[in-house]
């Protein structure tokens, strides 16, 4: 199990547009990725390819979330996905 903590960079938090971009990216990677708020137990982690899960997480600008994945290449996948969340997607 690989883990990667990320600080949400989007000014509006993980709202519709950033969530759509991120969910789309997760949908394209070969492994299953979960997302949870930093302090929450692993069992509460949600499917990161689900835009509705991402939105219902309610992660605001500056919040820390944890991405998790297993299997070959999972660490590189998490690194590339983390970069998306570390970008202010609304500024583009």
């Amino acid at each position: 199990m690989f883990e990667r903590k990320v600080i949400i960079a989007s000014r509006v938090g993980l709202h519709a547009r950033p969530a759509a971009i991120f969910a789309d990216a997760v949908g394209r990677v070969p492994v299953e990725v979960t997302i949870a708020m930093d302090a929450e137990p692993v069992d509460d982690a949600m499917d990161a390819s689900s835009i509705l899960s991402l939105m219902s997480l309610g992660a605001a600008h500056g919040d820390v979330v944890v991405l998790r994945a297993e299997g070959a290449g999972a660490d590189e996948v998490l690194e590339s996905l983390a970069k998306i969340l570390e970008t202010d997607l609304d500024a583009e």
């Binding site: 547009r17 969530a19 969910a23 499917d47 689900s50 835009i51 899960s53």
Partner: peptide, 16 residues
């Protein structure tokens, strides 16, 4: 456009 793109993703959302 942004709203419609997000809405389109909701239609096949895994959680839903």
């Amino acid at each position: 456009k942004a709203v419609l793109e997000a809405t389109a993703q909701m239609a096949t959302d895994s959680m839903l």
